[in-house]
Design a protein around this nucleic acid. Structure first.
Length: 422
RNA sequence: GGAGAGGUGGCUGAGUGGUUGAAAGCGCUCCCCUGCUAAGGGAGUAUGUGGUAAUCCUGCAUCGAGGGUUCGAAUCCCUCCCUCUCCGCCA
């Protein structure tokens, strides 16, 4: 959510910024809503003041006639306040709903553009492997091992779920362990969180009210499956005031993520690139406003380190104005090379949300006078399923085995190469 | 799931209808005193949102959340959430 005072005082600038995303801020509507709110608020609060004064007088009034007279008046005022209050409440709600649908302001260095075509590639790193044999995609490789199974998952659940077995399941687990350990060594605190969250948490990070169709909702409760660990981890400090000296706070969490993938019917139907359920190791930071730019660079570098250590070819991209997420002011994507697709695919998304989420979550930093809102950031470090798929494809050999990346050998109990098990 | 007890400011803890946004203590901040430390004295110390350009001034709201009764609610009533104790069940 944006600072309402920006809308009141810097509207032109703000409209210009939002326009870069293709979002049109309806000035007339805002002004109407805010004026209406102001009118009702002033009316009802001044009447409330009168009523409070009168109530105090009644308590002290000794003369019974005067008392009765005042009681009559107080009754009338009280009834009137009730009406005004309900007007005020509904006008505040209308204003608030309006504000909740406005995306975050973009950082100045976000490049212009409407679609992901306009995202700016900053650099490519790592060596794209050259194969002198017919390569397989990760699904074929996984099936070769009977380590990736899509029939069983359909029986159990439905399409866009997967079953991993044996070496593949173990490699998946090894990746999670490796990522968690690496980030803990970088200074992140490991944290385990609920996979179901309430509505307030989803509003806090910005998934609700606008993006409900992307979520899985539990039918017997007002709870949702998390689409990312960002939601439970960021909301840890909802409605809290943090002390300056405890910042920055850095968390790393491994969770499954659940996404309905509504509207992506034809997309990525092959393999495990786009699933309803996937695992992710997520980095989340709470920082001082003046540090958030630097912290985004560090966060991205921490996510990148996993790719570098796994020796996977990747590139770093800054998302253009039209592709930057609703709550983000600036996002870097890390994209890993998929030999079968001869293309880079997103494997991490690192964002600075500024105070957009913390205003919704009411996460403040204690100051001597007015408390300030903290800044939040998060990024995948990394998406586990896609990392697994990338390893299978980039580390395949002609005979169909998979070389285990050096840093994972210990996590695979010394196994250096995955061979066909039959 | 059943029975009971309870949720008050950074913490402890008073307060059962009327200047209570809330006693007292602790903690914290500033000032004074002091050669240093300790001790002592004084002042201050919740959050949000309006009126405002404003950190001055001032209104309103907030005692788990939301409703209700009342001229007036931390105090009474209802619903929900949470915590604790006991029983049951369970990984």
């Amino acid at each position: 959510m944006l600072d309402i005072n920006l809308l009141r005082n810097n509207l032109k600038e703000l409209q210009f910024n939002l326009k870069r995303r293709g979002f049109n801020l309806d000035q007339k509507k805002f002004e109407k809503l805010d004026t209406e709110r102001k009118k009702y608020q002033i009316e009802s609060e001044s009447l409330q003041e009168k009523s409070n004064t009168l109530a105090r007088e009644i308590a002290q009034e000794k003369n019974q006639d005067h008392k009765d007279q005042k009681l009559q008046e107080a009754k009338k005022i009280s009834a009137e306040i009730k009406k005004l209050k309900s007007n005020l409440d509904s006008s505040i709600k209308r204003l608030n709903d309006f504000l909740l649908e406005i995306p975050n302001l973009l950082a100045d260095d976000v490049p212009e553009g409407n679609t992901e075509e306009n995202n700016l590639v900053l650099y490519e790193k790592g060596n794209i492997p050259k194969f002198n044999f017919e390569i397989k995609d990760h699904q074929e490789l996984g099936e070769l091992f009977n380590g990736i199974n899509f029939e069983e998952s359909v029986t159990i659940a439905k399409s866009r779920f997967v079953v991993f077995r044996r070496e593949i399941a173990k490699l998946h687990r090894a990746l999670i362990q490796y990522m968690l350990d690496t980030h803990v060594n970088e200074g992140y605190e490991e944290i385990y969180v609920p996979y179901l969250v309430n509505v307030d948490s989803l509003k806090g990070t910005g998934q609700l009210p606008k993006f409900e169709e992307d979520l899985f909702k539990i039918s017997n409760e007002e709870m949702y499956l998390i689409p990312t660990a960002e939601v439970p981890v960021s909301n840890i400090y909802r409605n809290k005031i943090l002390n300056s000296d405890e910042l920055p706070i850095r968390y790393v969490a491994h969770t499954p993520c659940f996404r309905s993938e509504a509207g992506s019917y034809g997309k990525d139907t092959k393999g495990i690139i786009r699933q309803h359920q996937f695992d992710k190791v997520e980095l989340v930071k709470f920082v001082h406003p003046e540090d958030s730019d630097d912290e985004l660079e560090n966060l991205t570098a921490d996510a990148e380190r996993i790719l570098i250590n796994l020796n996977l070819p990747y590139r770093k991209v800054i998302l253009c104005s039209g592709d930057t997420g609703f709550a983000s002011s600036k996002t870097y994507d890390l994209e890993v090379w998929f030999p079968s697709q001869k293309t880079y695919r997103e494997i991490s998304s690192c964002s600075n949300f500024g105070d957009f989420q913390s205003r919704r979550m009411k996460i403040r930093i204690k100051q001597s006078k007015n408390n300030i809102l903290c800044h939040t950031l998060n990024g995948s470090g990394l998406a586990v399923g896609r990392t697994l798929a990338a390893i299978l494809e980039n580390y395949q050999t002609e005979k169909g085995s998979i070389i285990v990346p050096d840093v994972l050998i210990d996590y695979m109990d010394g196994t250096k190469e995955l061979n066909l098990s039959r």
